[in-house]
């Protein structure tokens, strides 16, 4: 590739970067406004709807976390298979999803925990002091669902992709050259070899979820003692910084593919 053909590559990168920044900027401003409104109205709502015994609380948390993480990890694995085995490495869908996955996995789980608090309080704030256990649980459910989508699935996708890539090319090449179809290559050679790593990736995704859940609990307690004073602005400052940096790094590593590696 000569210098002339690398220019459109740069242009494409800049266009994609600006589109993502605009989308994320809108989301950012939206969250900020929701946060400022709800943090102020919610502070007085109590958590009286939950029992103070440890075991029922733990069980109800696990009842939510375990099935959801299994579902999320399965979805992540299927998505990773599609990206890695069905799409070509130059497909723009794959490059876009990979850049977003890199971006989402680059955010520390602390920030997801905080995000969960905002969404949870924001949702629950609608009911204010009159909320019932059912509404409380519904808020918890939607919060968990969002956090799982944002956090567990990207980690699962990334870990599965890495596991699939760790299976050496000669194994795939020779299997394909013997006339195997994609399904046979996957089930007979690739999955048995990638399975341990995929499992490890699943554990990593789960650990992310638990870390965020732990933070959520901590923040929950904190909110009752301090009323979350000053949290919204500080939180948005850090979240904004993390978003920008993480975005930049993911664009550098995923979107911009050096011209020399695109061709065989």
């Amino acid at each position: 590739m000569n210098a002339l053909t690398t220019r459109p590559e740069l242009r494409k990168k800049i266009v994609l970067l600006s589109i993502t920044v605009i989308i994320e900027g809108v989301a950012f401003i939206f969250f900020w406004s929701v946060l400022r409104k709800t943090a102020a109205t919610h502070m007085q709502a109590s958590s009286a709807s939950r029992t103070s015994d440890a075991l029922p609380n733990l069980l109800s948390d696990l009842n939510l976390i375990l099935p959801m993480s299994l579902l999320a990890i399965l979805l992540g694995i299927v998505c990773a298979f599609y990206l890695e085995e069905w799409l070509s490495s130059t497909s723009w869908i794959r490059r876009f999803i990979e850049s977003q996955v890199a971006f989402l996995t680059g955010i520390p789980s602390l920030l997801y925990g905080l995000l969960a608090v905002i969404i949870f309080f924001g949702y629950a704030g609608v009911f204010k002091a009159t909320r019932t256990t059912f509404q409380h649980n519904t808020a918890l459910f939607y919060t968990e669902m969002l956090i799982f989508i944002l956090m567990v699935i990207p980690v699962a996708i990334k870990a599965t992709q890495e596991a699939l890539r760790s299976v050496e090319t000669p194994i795939r090449e020779s299997t394909y050259a013997l006339g195997a179809n994609r399904w046979q290559v996957l089930t007979q050679q690739v999955i048995p070899r990638a399975f341990p790593q995929m499992l490890a990736g699943g554990c990593r995704a789960m650990s992310q979820a638990f870390a965020a859940a732990a933070l959520l609990t901590g923040i929950h307690i904190w909110s009752h003692t301090t009323g979350l004073r000053g949290l919204p602005d500080r939180f948005m400052l850090f979240l904004g910084g993390a978003l920008l940096l993480s975005n930049a790094s993911s664009f550098l590593t995923e979107i911009y593919v050096p011209a020399s590696t695109q061709q065989n």
Binding site: P170, I171, E173, S174, T175, A177, L178, Q189, R193
Partner: peptide, 11 residues
Amino acid sequence: GMVFQRPNPLP
């Protein structure tokens, strides 16, 4: 059939 540059028997 195809034989490759590096011998690539399956493990």
